[in-house]
């Protein structure tokens, strides 16, 4: 599902201010088009993860940054591995 900013905030349970911060940190990278910013279900799931890290696990801002960076690498590796698996 493609959402605009307002719909995304409602789905992810975020405040405008929080979203602004997360976008500045590049924690969320929504698709930007002529018609504005588009958010996907994946962005909602990622926002939920960030929210859980912060509220449930007590991870601070620097911690979230590191976790996301490692997680993105992990998924990069998993994709490469998956591709290898298909190539072999």
């Amino acid at each position: 599902m493609i959402m605009n900013e307002e719909e995304f905030l409602a789905h992810a349970g975020l405040k405008t201010q929080t979203l602004k911060l997360w976008l500045e940190q590049h924690w969320l990278i929504p698709e930007r088009t002529s018609a504005g910013t588009h958010f996907s279900d994946m962005d909602v799931a990622r926002a939920r993860l960030i929210g859980e890290l912060q509220t449930n696990f007590g991870v601070n801002e620097e911690g979230v940054d590191i976790i996301l960076h490692l997680l993105d690498q992990l998924h990069g590796l998993r994709r490469a591995l998956d591709q290898l698996h298909k190539d072999l």
Binding site: M42, R48, Q73, H75, G76
Partner: peptide, 23 residues
């Protein structure tokens, strides 16, 4: 029921996020 981020992260749409510096 809720969808975890990992359900999306290996799809093609995850391009803006995943990176290859791990290997």
């Amino acid at each position: 029921q809720h969808h975890f981020y990992r359900d999306f992260a290996t799809s093609d749409h995850a391009q803006p996020y995943t990176n290859n510096s791990g290997f």
